[in-house]
Structures are given as C-alpha cells and as structure tokens.
Write a protein that binds this DNA or RNA. Structure first.
Length: 426
RNA sequence: GCGGGUAUAGUGUAGCGGUUAACACGUCUGGUUGUGGCCCAGAAGAUCGUGGGUUCGAUUCCCACUACUCGCCCCA
C-alpha cells in the first residue's frame, strides 16, 4: 500500500473503461476529419519558457505551483505540457506553417499535466482533445471550431447541449472595461467577500465567475463587457452571432464567462450539457490571437478549444451514455492431453493469421476441459475449438458453440475451418 | 496553499480493548473416463495504510504522517 502506488493525481485507465476512451477518440477523429482538420502530435515535454511566455502575466503562479518542471544537468529547464495551445502554436511557427494553405486546421489528443489538487473530474495527468484553427481572423473560423465541438458531443450522444458564449475584448478594449469593472466593484466593496476582494487585485475579470453568494445580483448591475467592446471586437462578435443564428444554432450569451489568461481575445465559449453546472462544462475554448507573438513568433491569429476526455468519460458514465461494446474475442482454443497443446498453439496462430481474434487456453500441467470451458464462458467467447487427441489424430477440431447450439466436428484440412468460422461469425 | 470525510483480502463491506479478524462478490481447483452457465466442495488471498503513544494487552482509543476522496483557491 505504501510502495506500490500510483502517483497522486494519476490514474490507470483499465480495460473496462477503454471502450469509452476509444469511442471518444475515434469519434473525435472522424468529426475532425469531416470538418477538414488534420491530426498533429506535439511533444509532451517543451522548454519551460514556451509555457511561461505563452500564458503571460499570470505565469509566475503557474510556474511556481502548477507545472511539472525538470531542470537538466546543463541547466536547461523543461516542462510537461500543461496545455496544448502553446505547443501547437510553437509547431506552427517552427515548421513554417505560415507557408501552408491558410488557415491551418489541426486537432490532437493526448495527456497534459497540471500540478493541482485533484478533485472530482480533475487529475494531475488528464487527456484532452484539442482543435485549433491558425492563421484566420474571420469569425466564421470561430463558428467552425464551435460547431466542431458541438457536433462531437452530439455524435457522442449528449442531449440538451448549449453554447455559453461571450466576448472578452482585445488589448484595445479589454483594459478599458476592466477599469470600469474595477471602479464598479470599488463602489461596492462592502458587499464583496474577502475572496473576491483578493480576486479584484489579482485578476478582476475572474470576479465575474465568482461563486460567492449574492454575487449574482451584484453582477447583474455591473458593467458587462459586451457593452464596452471596441468596434472591431463588436463587429466580430456580431458576425459570429449572425452565423450561429443563420445555422439555427442556439447559444446563450453569458457575460460571466471569462478566461483567466491574458492571451484570450474576442470569442470565449463553452459547451454545457443539460443538468451539468458550469464546473462540468464539456469543453472550453476561444480566440487567442496574441499567443504566437507572446512566444516569440510572428503575429498569428488562432482560435480553438480543448475538451477534457477524463471528464467527458465520467459524464458519459453518470448519464449512462453507452459507447459501442468492446470488440470481443469470439474464439477460444482448448486442448486436452498428449501433443494437443503444441497443435493448439499452432491452430491459434493459424486463426489469427486468418484474421480471427483467438484466445488460447494455457495449461502448465494437464488441465481439465471443464476448467477451460469455464474460462471460455466467463470471457464470453462464442466458440470453443476443442483439440483432443482423437481430433488431432483425425486432423479435425470439435467446434463447440456456447450459445446452446449443437457442436460439430470440422476438418483442419485446407481452409475448411476458416470457412466454417467465417460463416458462423458473419 | 486552505478546509471536511475516509483508510480492514482483488472489490464491496462486517467486527471487537483480549477472536483462528467475519461475510459477499471475484480468483483458482475439483465434483470419476474429454465439455461452460446453476449448484456443491475445497484452496489461495489481510503483518486490519505507516509511525508513535495510552493500556497488562490495540485492528479497535488518542496523535502525527501518508494516501484516497469531496470542496475552496486556481483553472492555460
């Protein structure tokens, strides 16, 4: 219990849970392909400064407390990626994707690492599905990213999905708004909780999604960013909404929806599912036109989203959304005495060559057929191929169906067994 | 970083200041000569999270630590 143990916040994805994961990843890949996104993988490890520059002002906090960083002997500092965007933007710049047909549309799946305190649906290692469009400022690109997310969740079987949508402004209008918000809050200091006063210092926008009691009423009267956007941002937001309206896609303008990091501009959105609170949003994303420059590359607009796979799987499980059943292994080869084990081994490989998923019964010593039958039954095998000495002598196997059908003897000559099985399993 | 809860075989639980630490599920084996599910029998599997106390004696009471868990902060 003390020695052999997972690292805090890490988890094993056992075979029983894999069908959720596989289904999610496969559906995600299919949908991405349909939307014209190409797959990409970026390293788990990057130079620390990539993430430090990428996340901007709040970086001290993350660097100190929330990132897994190792310093190599020569002093080079590396960090396990705490997000995908920085790495993908780095790959875009480093591989000269500016010279590809614009925009470049990419998606990826993989683990990310954050040294946070684990809690329901939050792990230190968790996997994300990410999609990004790089090199395009058109609000239609935002729409496409949003609809990719929405389609994915619909395809997975979620119901009652809604967009939560907001605009967070840009370097031109966001600071002006933040000042207005700060001034408003200063006038209502006495109704702010200590936590929110603290927030006002560090990251005023975050007050908007405060969970403190009474904030709802106060925030309703606070200045809303949608009313303080610059012309460019207002146009972008208006056009985005127009497109959504035109698609008949419902959305909720949520003025409390914000992102904690500076590089987000204009669009921010989440997908919520019926009955799930804001904390369990299925995904979140937005526009990050400032990132490429922040990491030292040429100014490049980008928009994308990330969806936490672990959390989506949890949600599917609590809702009873069933992925397709795991592929089964329909055949077990049993053997019984004499040289039959050797022959069974060969038979199993022969069947696998012929594309039949096959399990082979093992037996150090002589093992009863009954025991092997039990194994087959527990594994939900459809046919047990019994290879005893008499079958071996006759160059045949007994094919025993486990669904109650009659067993038959099939010759091992030529392709007879393969043909029989192909028909039976069709 | 802060706060609440929990810690007994693989899993879920019971238990008590002194017991061979129990039960269910699961696992394995067997139930006459080569055939699953039900049933029956047996077996393996726990220094009762770790370390300190209190006590004649601690799995049981107390403390600390660790881990797990739920929430807060934060959330790229």
């Amino acid at each position: 219990m003390t020695e052999i143990q997972r690292v805090t916040g890490m988890q094993d994805i056992l075979p029983m849970a894999q069908r959720y994961w596989r289904h999610l990843i496969q559906t995600g890949s299919e949908v991405a392909h349909q939307f014209g996104f190409q797959p990409i993988d970026v390293p788990v490890l990057e130079y620390t400064h990539l993430f430090v520059r990428g996340v901007g002002e709040a970086s001290d906090f993350f660097v100190n407390k929330e990132m897994y960083t190792i310093v190599e002997e020569d002093g080079v500092s590396l960090t396990l990626r705490p997000e995908f965007t920085a790495g993908i933007v780095r790959a875009y710049v480093e591989n000269g994707m500016q010279n590809w047909v614009q925009p470049v549309k990419l998606f990826t799946v993989g683990p990310i690492f954050r040294r946070e305190r684990p809690q329901a649906g939050r792990f230190r290692q968790h996997s994300q599905y990410n999609a990004e469009i790089m090199g395009e400022t058109d609000p239609a690109a935002d729409v496409e990213v949003m609809m990719l997310a929405m389609t994915l969740f619909q395809r997975l079987g979620f119901r009652g999905l809604t967009f939560q949508l907001n605009s967070t402004g840009c370097p031109a209008c966001k600071p002006v708004y933040v000042e207005k918000l700060r001034a408003f809050m200063a006038d209502h200091l006495q109704s702010l909780s200590p936590v929110d006063r603290e927030r006002m210092q560090r990251n005023p926008l975050r007050i908007l999604d405060s969970k403190e009691p009474g904030m709802e009423k106060l925030l309703a009267n606070a200045p809303h960013i949608a009313d303080h956007l610059c012309a460019d941002c207002a146009d972008h937001f208006a056009e985005l909404r127009q497109h959504l309206d035109h698609l008949g896609q419902a959305y909720t303008i949520n003025f409390r929806l914000v992102r904690g990091i500076d590089y987000y501009v204009k669009t921010v959105f989440e997908v919520w599912a019926e009955g799930i609170g804001a904390q369990a949003a299925l995904c979140g994303g937005g526009r990050y036109d400032g990132v490429a420059e922040a990491i030292g590359g040429p100014s490049t607009p980008g928009v994308g989203f990330g969806a936490g796979i672990d959390r989506i799987v949890l949600t599917m499980q609590t809702w009873g959304i069933e992925p397709p059943p795991a592929p089964e292994v329909p055949i077990l080869v049993a053997h019984f005495g004499g040289d039959t084990k050797t022959a069974a081994l060969a038979l199993a490989f022969r069947l696998r060559q012929a594309q039949f998923p096959t399990r082979l019964a093992f037996a150090r010593e002589r093992r009863s057929l009954k025991s092997q039958m039990r194994e087959a039954n527990k594994l939900n095998v459809r046919y047990v191929l019994i290879l005893g000495e008499s079958e071996l002598a006759a160059n045949a196997v007994v094919v025993r169906p486990l669904d109650g059908g009659a067993q038959v003897t099939v010759s091992l000559a030529e392709e007879q067994l393969e043909q029989w099985l192909r028909q039976a399993l069709a």
